[in-house]
């Protein structure tokens, strides 16, 4: 990988984090507005509730797609943490292949469901559910690409735990 490509990747990762942070900030604000409008102004509003729930879904799936690193993901590491790097590489390839296969097989049906949801709209903002749920499509595609990359790294001989962004940039 060239240095400029790596720089672009890091830039994109920071922007993805900006977006996730903005979503959380917006959720926080929506809650405060909701309390203020109901209690201080006596004008209960409901759209804030809807906004927070939508942001929650988008934050989790956007974050899982583009922001959360391998190290931050919650895993069951009793075996994973106690084997050598060679074994861990094989484990990474096996799980990646299984995940890619299953997510890819489900993709047409998932796409079908999400496009079907155009028939419904949210209660307040009247957002069509196919748009609201489209983040799941993004999530599936991003995850498949990420695991193809992880499997490829493992095949090239990079054990998963060595794949660390701080180490990657330490050569500069």
């Amino acid at each position: 990988m060239t240095a400029s490509l790596r720089a672009t990747g890091a830039w994109l990762a920071r922007r993805a984090e900006n977006v996730a942070s903005a979503m959380l900030a917006a959720m926080f604000l929506a809650f405060l507005l909701q309390i203020a409008f109901r209690y201080v102004l006596g004008l209960p509003i409901g759209w804030t509730h809807e906004v927070s729930v939508i942001l929650w879904i988008w934050l989790v799936l956007w974050g899982a797609s583009f922001v959360v690193s391998e190290r931050e993901e919650i895993r069951f590491d009793i075996i994973y943490g106690s084997v050598g790097s060679g074994t861990r590489r094989i484990m990474a390839i096996v799980t990646a292949v299984a995940l890619i296969a299953l997510y890819a097989i489900s993709f047409p049906a998932v796409l079908d469901y999400i496009t079907f949801m155009k028939v419904e709209k949210t209660g307040y903002l009247k957002i069509r559910f196919d748009w609201l749920f489209s983040i799941y499509i993004v999530f599936i595609i991003a995850t498949i690409i990420r695991y193809i990359w992880l499997a490829w790294q493992a095949m090239r001989g990079v054990a998963p735990d060595d794949f660390d962004p701080t180490k990657a940039s330490s050569g500069v």
């Binding site: 996730a20 959380l24 959360v68």
Partner: peptide, 10 residues
Amino acid sequence: SARTTASIGM
């Protein structure tokens, strides 16, 4: 917080 939210949310 956003990062933690995403990994717990998954």
